[in-house]
Design a binder for these strands. Sequence first.
RNA 1: CGGGGUGUAGCUCAGCUUGGUAGAGCGCUUGCCUUGGGAGCAAGAAGUCGUCGGUUCAAUUCCGGCCACCCCGACCA
Length: 526
Amino acid sequence: MAEKITPRAENYPKWYLNVIQEAGLADNSDVRGCMVIKPNGYAIWENMQRGLDRMFKDTGHVNAYFPLFIPMSYLAKEEEMAEGFAKECAVVTHYRLKAEKGQPLKVDPTAELEEPLIVRPTSETIIWRTYKSWIQSWRDLPLLINQWANVVRWEMRTRLFLRTAEFLWQEGHTAHATAAEAEAETLQMVKVYAKFAEEFMAVPVLVGPKTDGQKFPGAIYTLCIEAMMQDGKALQAGTSHFLGQNFAKAFDVKFTTADNKKEFAWATSWGASTRLIGGLIMTHSDDQGLVVPPRLAATHVVICPLGKTEDERAPALAAAKKLADELKAFPREEFFGYEPIRVTIDNDLKSSPGYRFGLHEVRGVPIRVEIGPKDLAKEIPTCIVARRDFQYRVEIEPDLNHQKKAETPLSQAALEIAASLKDIQRVLFDRAKKYRDARTVTANTLEEFAGYFPVKAGEKDDEELDLNALKFVYAHWDGTRETEDLVQKQYKATIRCLPFDGPTEPGTCPFTGRPSARMVVFARAY
RNA sequence: CGGGGUGUAGCUCAGCUUGGUAGAGCGCUUGCCUUGGGAGCAAGAAGUCGUCGGUUCAAUUCCGGCCACCCCGACCA
């Protein structure tokens, strides 16, 4: 078998790119920093959208759409936001090209916009400008709106899914009559993200506020979910911001209260992006390729009919179709988003079975079914059910090898497959949680802390670090920006968040000796 | 924006030192053969050698400018 994927232990970043390529998730495009999301990758995004959108609707939100272009002056109205995003804004200055025969196409210098437009890096400004006309009375509140969109942030260095110049996301923007209501919304939505991460993505997350140094430009505070990747690095996977009255003041959004007073509205915003796909890959996938939890998988089940001759193939194909129909007709349930089980039949009987199996494996199909002449010749016809979450290679996970393939009577296969899909979802979450918990430690002294974040001189970033080197480290912190910056500089570790369910006892900051209110989580981050 | 590197077939790259108009592997097409873990054989299609200029009888090769991309730092979902 041609090994196309660099093992994780050898070079984790390279492995990540190999998986994306071999699984057909995305490609780099000719446009710098922008990716092409391929069907297998986009299907995962669609499943994410479906799951999240359902949860947004269930919590009372509705979808709307706002313009891609934002007048430059809008961004300027909120000072922190202008400062935060100024350096990564794409700007539109002209509205016309000049096309003359025999001449190269060029920008028409006579068609300059009076005011440049920026391509949205996030939509708070244009949305709050719009809310000004939507909100007059307390009866107009709360305003609970989400939009699915693309945004552009002109990043210096990009990586497929994790950081691209253009990315797809959703951004919720809500307006409330009171601070308490807005804060409750902020908390509710970060919990929605946590639930989505754990129940759909099978990714365990830490939930809690960011430090002031890490919060969103323009926010009073930011709540986030943080996941651990297989290299021990942290990935911020979703954020929910309490924006106070900052944007209401910037765009003069006032409403009349029940007792006829004027007040500025209170705001939240929250977002999650295609970065989630990167996190999904780095949490579950293995050296054989992509592993996707069933709730997000593009295809749940692929059935591979086998056979040398037409005489062998025809019955195998017929049995495959029958099983596919049974699976598709399965009663719809919440686990599958009330949609049919996604089954495909691999009709490529001319390719070798090994090639076909390998292809589905690298592409992350949770369950593969084999139906061939040997199975159909039995008194009670059977099929082989192979689970993607169990390695088939003895040398890699010998203890799991016995579970790699199971022979199942065809008559029961649909039932067992549906049950296995749910089991895979559970196994992936448990595995990821165990992995994270085993790599979460506490540092009580500076020496301990330093030991967890080795920075070896002359080393090229973390590529040469052992895959097992990095951890989530709980440690005390004196609460100052200076200390946070110092730690980042010395150890390349940042404070990921102050987890809601982490230890909250006060102590002493190991970096400065000053008192600390509670422990926080440090990690290297993407 | 600083440091380094690379541009040759769809992809990964060799060739350039010592100039004479281009190769391999993979992929693709066709045929034969093969089928329960990534088979084999044969034939075939495919490249203005990043770009502009210089040197030369002759430039993918030598020289210079430009452009693009990649990696490492700073910045970031």
